[in-house]
Structures are given as structure tokens and as C-alpha cells.
Nucleic acid binder design. Sequence first.
DNA 1: TAAGTGTTCACAT
DNA 2: TGAACACTTA
Length: 265
Amino acid sequence: MGIQGLLPFLKKSSRNIQLSEFRGKVAAVDVYCWLHKGAFSCAEKLVKGEPTDGYIIYVMKQVNLLLSHNIKPILVFDGCHLPAKEVTELKRRENRVKNRRKAKELLREGKIKEARECFQRCVDITSTMAHEVIKACRARNIDTIVAPYEADSQLAFLNINGVADIVITEDSDLILFGCSKIIFKMDSNGCGVLVEKEKLHLSMNVPRDKFDFTKFRNMCILSGCDYLPSLHGIGLVKACRFFIVTSNPDVYTVSLSKVLNFVNM
DNA sequence: TAAGTGTTCACAT
DNA sequence: TGAACACTTA
Ligand SMILES: [Mn+2]
């Protein structure tokens, strides 16, 4: 998911940071990342439908970490499923059902450890869970937003319009949505990796004035993204080579034969 | 060297 | 919600 291999590709646009660098800033958080991580701590209970607040504790721990650095969080939740990702969603559901069956089977055989692994593979983040976290946030006066669809575009909106100085996520798509500063891989020590829009040209190996963000976004789309089937055999490197030499930045009107010719296929 | 595929990992004791 | 890693393929 996201753009395959984009983060390693953008190494020259990234640097390690400490949360303390962002004292006084506002951060829009892709909170489903935290929900998924937090759900690991209580996977078995969640799958069995037993009450647990493990995932709430985890999210709040992360929130408190931001607060301790005087960073104001805005938690953004995913809303409706995007129709374009229905196939992905169905596959995931199928996988969850499979692992759930396997987990119960292993449990009957007394293989506790193996069962636990399967439980972790079939946790689903429900809107009820999201609501529990929202309630916990309200109790502490933490801002929350539920996006119409994926959180991605909502997070970008907050960042682009200056409501949030930074975005915290694990999803490389946020770069394409035009965010200026994104923190990936934030850990409980307050460390993370910052990717900046202003530094994207460094990874493309072009001077700043020759960098075109639309071109960059279309390069990523050409390499393959979540919303449509992608061309086999074309990844980021070939897409990048193509977009460096082409003057037409529009991926939809450039002729396919030109692309295929260029990447030698 | 690049891209595709399948597997593992994220929590926390 | 996703990425990283190991391995295969061309
Ligand atoms: Mn995304």
C-alpha cells in the first residue's frame, strides 16, 4: 500500500529528528496507524469481543508524548471506505476470516503461542474502537476529526492550509498529497524520520528550480499506486527516468508507447 | 540493478 | 493503517 518503495527512494529528502525540534507546533496525526499498532497489544481480546482498553492506552501514550514536547495534536480518523480500494478491503477481510479460523483451531490444540500470532493477523479496527478513542480524547480536550473517506487528504488539507505544521503518519501517500513536513516512524522515544516537500528535488537528482511537484506526483502514479491497476515492470526508478526527460508532466495524456519505448520494454 | 512476490512486523511481557 | 525484509525473476 502507499507507493511501493517511496520512503527509501526519498532518502536524500529525509533526516532523523527528535520531537523536541517541534516544540510549540501543531501536528495532524494519521491516528489509524496508532490504532493498528495499539491493537497488537490486545489482539486476542479484540477478536474474541472481550472488553479491552489496550489500544486506547497506546494511542493516549503517543498523544501524551506529543503533549510532553509541547506539540498540539489533532487526531484525524479514517471515515468511509474508498470505493477505489474495495478489492483490497475484501482481500483483507478474507484474510482476517482465515486467520480467525486458524487461531481458534490452534487454541483447541493448545498451541497458545501460534494462536496469538493468528489473532494478531485478524484484528479489525472498527468504528466503535475509533469512537472509544475519540471519547477518551474529548475527555482530555484533544482535537479530533473524522475524515469523509481516507484520512490522507484531510491530513494534507490541514497541513497545506497551515492549520497543522506537521503531519505524523506511516503512509508514504501523504507526500503525494502535498504535505510540507511529514514525520514517519515516530517511536516512543520521540524519534522519527522527517520528509520535507522542499527537499524532494534532492532525491530526483534535479536542481530545485527544475523540480515540478506535479511531475513528481505523476511519476509516483506511473510507478503504481493503490487506486488503479499499475503497469507491470515499471517501478519508481524507471518512472523517474522517464519523467526527468519528458516535457509533458501529464501522465494521462503522454502516449503509452512513448513510456514503454523509453523504459526499454 | 530494478521490480515483483511472499513473509514478517508493529505491542509488550 | 501500512513498511521492511528476503528471495526470485528478467
Ligand atoms: Mn494512503
